[in-house]
Amino acid sequence: MLKPLHKSDGNSLNSVFTQVKNSSFAFFIDMANGTEYLKTVLKNFVTKKFEFQEFLKQCYQIGNKSLGLISITGIIIGLVLTIQSRPPLVQFGAVAMLPGMVAVSIIREMGPVITALICAGKIGSSMGAELGSMRVTEQIDAMEVSNTHPINFLVIPRVAAATVMIPLLTLYADAIGIFGSWLGINIKDTMSLRYFINQAFLSVEFLDIIPAVIKSFFFGAVIGLVGCYKGYNAGRGTESVGVAANSAVVTASLLVIIVDLIAVQITDLI
Rank of each mutant, 00 (worst) to 15 (best):
Q84P: 05
K215Q: 00
M110V: 15
V226C: 06
I197E: 13
V41R: 01
D30T: 14
L2R: 03
A248D: 04
K48F: 07
S192H: 11
L81C: 13
M191L: 13
E109A: 12
V104N: 08
S125E: 04
E144L: 11
V20Q: 06
F206K: 08
I106D: 10
V90E: 15
V259N: 07
M101S: 14
C119N: 05
D30W: 07
A212F: 02
F196K: 08
G74C: 08
T115F: 14
T40I: 02
E36C: 00
L117M: 12
S146D: 03
S181P: 12
G74I: 04
T73N: 13
V243K: 09
V155Y: 02
A32E: 04
N198A: 07
C59H: 10
I77N: 11
I114W: 10
D30L: 03
S181Q: 09
L69D: 10
Y172H: 03
E138L: 07
I72Q: 10
K43G: 04
I123M: 02
L168H: 05
M31N: 06
K65A: 13
I176A: 15
L225Y: 13
V164Y: 07
Y172R: 05
N44M: 02
L79S: 13
A244G: 12
V145D: 02
N64E: 10
V159F: 00
R86G: 08
Q61F: 13
V213C: 09
M191C: 11
A26I: 06
V16G: 01
I151F: 06
S66Y: 05
T238Q: 06
A244D: 03
T35G: 05
P167T: 05
I83H: 12
M31C: 08
P150D: 01
F45C: 05
V20I: 14
G184L: 11
N33A: 07
F206L: 12
R194P: 02
P211L: 02
H149G: 02
